[in-house]
Design a protein around this nucleic acid. Structure first.
Lengths: 354, 354
DNA sequence: ATTAGCACTCATTTTCTGCGAGTGCTAACA
DNA sequence: TGTTAGCACTCGCAGAAAATGAGTGCTAAT
């Protein structure tokens, strides 16, 4: 949408002011606020126009104006345009050490929440394209095998496989060799019915054990493909914005952040979009967020590892700062990983669910 | 404290009524509510006595009475006494299959929250006394080893050890044998400086690798000893009780449930108490809970695995039902684990932090 | 010992009122 | 033709005042 210069300036002024105060802003305020020397009356005329265009609205007669979703959209688009060039060369975030991932991502969510005063979410990287590094089978007892899978990016998954019949220590070793020989270098996606049947053939007398093991592995590894792990922080920041905390759906919003699972929709829909996304109000992919704005950035660690970082706040979010912060995220991560690098320990996991 | 029968009945009636409504209850209500046929005037006299004893209080002149912490305490003690015999033989909860633990505990928290309409927390079992079942070392690259530790109870931990110098595939195997031979059957606690140094001696030319590996293992395993993993659910139930949601510390309360870490104090203090504990208001071990009541039950899975289940709600919690529910927990868990038993898969974990 | 009666208290709800921020419109002006 | 001053009007909001009513304590009668 093109907008004549003066209107654009006035709209920007209105939004800026509203971002700060959260109160409807009147013509007189703008008249003083902007550098273009115009009387309140003139501003009023322009405002009437802007309202007609659906960019601003009066909550009630004789109150100031507040931006509509469309108004915010205009503002954000304009800002993103202005910042565009800055992003180009920083699309890829540097995340070398993926071990101890969970701690780092939690920490990241926390830092973001503290910095922005909004609620944040960080999705653990999914790794559909990620290749297997090795599989290690260990016999737990007669009919149970612990399978540990490590993929590129040093992500570790473990799963306890309950076989229907007993298996000898020796057979486990054989299976181990067989699996690694056959699967090494395959990506997680590639473990399909064909691979299984060809493995079965190769396994000969061990074939009965192949299927449960492979199924278990596939399940364990694929588990968080559809339901990626999500870390959240700063949910209570929502209380800082009356228009959100008093909104009827505030409870559901917080509930969604607690259960995390409802946020998946958001994560999935942002996942395959490049760069920084801004959803304003109704634009959000997720009903409960209709009173909020959401800014997401996706990150890519290479090896098919990618996820998103999201910030949820009121529509009168400080878009400038949020986008800037996400942009500067790389540095934050660098710092975290640098710190991590000084320690020897990395990653330990209790059995984890789907 | 002994209380003459009629007073006790009146107090109980007041509390019962207040539990339901959350409103101060007046003399007339009680006069009709109880089966003892007394006029409101008589009730008023008795209430004056009860107030003098500090069991009930008027929020303001000419409002009904509400119970004090002390009043609740009387009520709860009385109830626990009446139920006492039911508990004795059910102290130990049956949790055979500890794999897929995380899913089960999350599920448990959720079920509890849905059933009770309060906020719930479940701590993952700590396993200080827990014995090592086996350790499996795998060489990731020249100087990195993945150590997978399984303990009794089938809890799996994994940790990536970054050695300072390269190690051969062969040496890893040797280490593996050595570690398992020396550590097998030891409890986690017993991996101390003595064990390390004697292992070092035994390891000969591999001794440089022993220390980082053992330290990593000890850290990975000990990690959630001081900071047990906590699962929460139903935090937003807090909004159902105005006296909580409007309380100034409501935000902090929810924040604590989000961050989880602050709840540790509660978990730790309940951990070493037998049976079902009820903390009313100020009795709580944790400042932020002073407007709430907390009911905790500890569970014990044998093998030194134990944790707690907690329910956080308003002081006017339905103690009867909550205690009953925790008591019936065994059945819920049975159901979950029964369902789990039908599946083959169990437990998979991404590298986890401290 | 219990209870009916009554005056009194006080949080809450409702109604009313004035204020003022902000508007739209008109008329004058550059 | 675009800008501005002026003015009447609207309407949410805050505060005061009044009405309400649940509940009490006390007293006197049973």
């Amino acid at each position: 949408m093109e907008l004549e210069d003066r209107k654009s300036k006035i709209l920007t002024a209105i939004i800026r002011n509203y971002l700060e105060t959260g109160e409807p802003v009147g013509s007189r305020t703008i008249s003083k606020f902007t550098d273009l020397q115009l009387s309140s009356a003139t501003i009023r005329n322009e405002m009437a126009d802007l309202e007609e265009m659906g960019l601003i609205i009066q909550p009630h007669t004789s109150a100031g104006r507040i931006p509509t979703d469309k108004g915010y959209r205009f503002y954000v688009d304009q800002m993103m345009e202005a910042r565009k060039h800055e992003f180009d060369d920083e699309k890829k975030l540097l995340l070398q050490r993926v071990d101890r991932m969970e701690a780092a991502l939690k920490q990241l969510a926390k830092v973001l929440a503290a910095n922005t005063n909004y609620a944040t979410l960080v999705s653990a990287p999914t790794y559909t394209q990620n290749k297997l590094k090795f599989i290690q089978l260990s016999r737990v007892d007669e009919a149970k095998i612990l399978a540990v899978i490590m993929t590129q990016g040093n992500i570790v998954k473990s799963t306890l496989v309950d076989l229907n019949e007993d298996i000898s220590e020796d057979d486990v070793l054989k299976m181990n060799v067989l699996l690694n020989a056959s699967l090494n270098g395959l990506s997680v996606d590639e473990i399909n019915i064909n691979v299984i049947s060809s493995l079965k053939a190769e396994a000969k007398e061990l074939s009965v054990a192949v299927e449960p093991i492979l199924t278990a592995i596939a399940q364990a590894v694929a588990s968080d493909k559809d339901e990626p792990q999500i870390y959240t922080s700063g949910t209570t920041n929502i209380f800082k914005y009356p228009e959100l905390s008093q909104s009827s759906s505030a409870t559901e919003l917080i509930g969604a952040f607690e259960e995390k699972q409802p946020l998946n929709e958001l994560v999935l829909s942002s996942m395959n979009k490049e760069g920084i996304q801004v959803y304003i109000g109704e634009e959000s992919p997720f009903e409960n967020l209709k009173d909020c704005s959401v800014v997401t950035a996706n990150y890519d660690l290479g090896d098919g590892l990618h996820g998103i970082v999201g910030i949820v706040g009121p529509k009168r979010m400080d878009y400038e700062r949020v986008v800037g912060t996400l942009h500067g995220l790389k540095n934050q991560l660098d710092a975290i990983y640098k710190e991590m690098g000084t320690k020897k320990i990395s990653g330990s996991g209790i059995g984890k669910d789907e």
